[in-house]
Amino acid sequence: MSDLLYVLSRLLRAVAMILGVVVLCFVLVRLAPGDPAQLMAGDAGIDDPAYIAQLRQSMGLDRPLPEQLLAYVTGIARLDLGYSYPNRASVWSLISERLPATLLLMGSALLLAATVGVLLGVVAARSRQRRRWLDGLIAQGALLLYAIPPFWLAMVLVLVFSVQLNWLPAFGMQEVGGQLHGWALWRDSLAHLLLPCLSLSFLYLAMYVHLARSAMLEVMAQDHVRTAYAKGLGYWRILLAHQLRNALLPVVTMVGLQFGQLASSTLLIEVVYAWPGIGRLLYDALSQRDYALLLGVFLVIGTVVVVMNVLVDLLCRLLDPRIQAGALY
């Protein structure tokens, strides 16, 4: 009963937050210098004030700002995010066409970073007593990965694996012009995904290694773990139920907090690898002053981040009974 109430209130707050994101982005975009009507007219080679005014009117830019905002927000409810004039298409159709690619990249990178990161962190923490070198190797290696900027790493990976070794494709999501089906299509997609996913995940992997390692070290020193040993429990039971489970809490919390960062890194990586996601879309929208598209991308990314945070909150609640009872915070 209280669980349902909690979920409802959390969703309500999420909707309010997304609305806040919309308003903020809307105002910020309008405050930025540059006029799309003028830009479009310039592209067409026309410098007639009357023509520009007409363009502005047709794009709805002549109405007062609050009115434009209201029209935009009511449009969202109908999935009408406006019209992208430079692309001659509705914003929603542009985004929905490319969103799956972005989500695939983000999701696979996050999954890789979190699972491998936690695994390595646990191995490092457990090696601290008897195989110190392994702990040192993992911790230092993670630090090295952490220090490398993802976009630079992306370029190096392309140079090595695509240009020099020619093992993996350098860009795109599928072989251009290749009519592939079934298993071959899977293989091809995976090959295309591998480099972008790795370049994106390394930074976060490094963070999760460190986080999981320090959380594990902390939990391993706790009294309840000693109790577990004193009870004569088996190796795996102690590791999984008493150490890893407790150590996961800070990691899960961090995943939620960093999701926004991950989204922005994804957009950058997409540009480097020409990944057909919304990163490229955003890049073009920026240079073309395509207000409607820009706002649409912001809105969708903001929504994804907020939704992810709601999920993480619910997961934390599931993992830690103290949060449910309000005994923490």
């Binding site: 009294d223 309840h224 000693r226 993992l319 103290r322």
Partner: peptide, 16 residues
């Protein structure tokens, strides 16, 4: 041999 520790607050796993 059974063992009981000093700190009743921390000797039990808080999540189970």
């Amino acid at each position: 041999i059974g063992m009981v520790f000093q700190e009743p607050m921390s000797a039990l796993n808080p999540l189970l």
